[in-house]
């Protein structure tokens, strides 16, 4: 055991090293939201040879950006190269409020329910700034939102209640159990408006997400999208042998592959 410890420590140290996306392709700014009064740090990963004069770039808005930005930016570049297609701008939204405030649609035991204001911030303040300052594509189909867990819940909420904002949704382990599956009610209420739009939706989960809450609402949401949205490009994946946190990065990779293959 004593001999094993240094090896394990080295392995853990090496695997703890965070990939950092090329700083020369990264820009950062702060933005004060008049919708909810919070200040957000936004990081933007630019594609190689970024030239807004000649290219219309799509954008992936990444929730829990402080944790996910580098991984998404690195892999977005790799996967777009693999598919020989233009890369996107990866827009990381840092924490202005706690995620249980910004990412939850209603006030319940687990969250404060300020998602509507957060979505207004994205729609009315962040996206216009990206369009003005970075010259990104203004078409709905060129905007994608990516979130995990409560971030996945917010992505699902964007789908049901702010469907004109994004054309693509990468929902990873979405907390659809939240507030007695309130998202299923929103989906039902807004279905007739939303199912006329073209959508690209990737739903990912860890195969071994336990806790008695993830699997059944995930399947219910997936079936509703599959049977009620004729214009949808829908992907579903259960990451083998992994749980809620462990499946996040593999599902980001699957989701990015799905997006670049089907956009």
């Amino acid at each position: 055991m004593k001999n094993l410890m240094p090896i394990l420590l080295v392995l853990a140290f090496v695997s703890c090293q965070k990939e950092v996306f090329n700083p020369q392709q990264t820009s950062e700014f702060s933005i004060h939201s008049s919708a909810n009064g919070a200040d957000y740090t936004i990081k933007v990963a630019l594609p190689q040879h970024y030239d807004p004069e000649t290219n219309q770039y799509a954008t992936i808005y990444v929730l829990d950006g402080d944790e996910n930005f580098n991984f998404v930016a690195e892999n977005s570049e790799k996967i777009s190269t693999e598919y020989s297609t233009t890369n996107v701008l990866v827009v990381s939204i840092g924490y202005g409020n706690d995620r249980t405030v910004d990412y939850t649609p209603t006030s319940a035991t687990e969250g404060k329910g300020q998602a509507e204001k957060f979505m207004q911030f994205i729609q009315d303040e962040l996206i216009p700034k990206m369009e003005t300052d970075y010259g990104v594509d203004t078409a709905r189909e060129s905007r994608i939102i990516l979130g995990h867990s409560f971030g996945g819940l917010l992505a699902a909420y964007a789908f049901t209640n702010f469907n004109t904002v994004f054309g693509g949704y990468l929902m990873l382990s979405p907390s659809l159990w939240y507030d007695n599956e309130i998202l299923l009610r929103y989906e039902q209420e807004n279905r007739d408006i939303n199912n006329n739009h073209h959508q690209l939706v990737y739903l990912g989960l860890g195969e071994l997400e336990k806790g008695g809450r993830m699997l059944a609402p995930f399947e219910a949401f997936y079936h509703r999208l599959a049977f009620n949205y004729p214009g949808i490009k829908l992907g579903r994946h259960l990451e083998p042998h992994l749980d809620h946190v462990g499946s996040k990065n593999p599902n980001i990779l699957e989701g990015l592959h799905f997006y670049f293959e089907n956009r």
Partner: peptide, 11 residues
């Protein structure tokens, strides 16, 4: 063994 990604240690 399955993944060297440290987030998988949750499992």
């Amino acid at each position: 063994f399955k993944s060297f990604d440290i987030t998988s240690v949750d499992g």
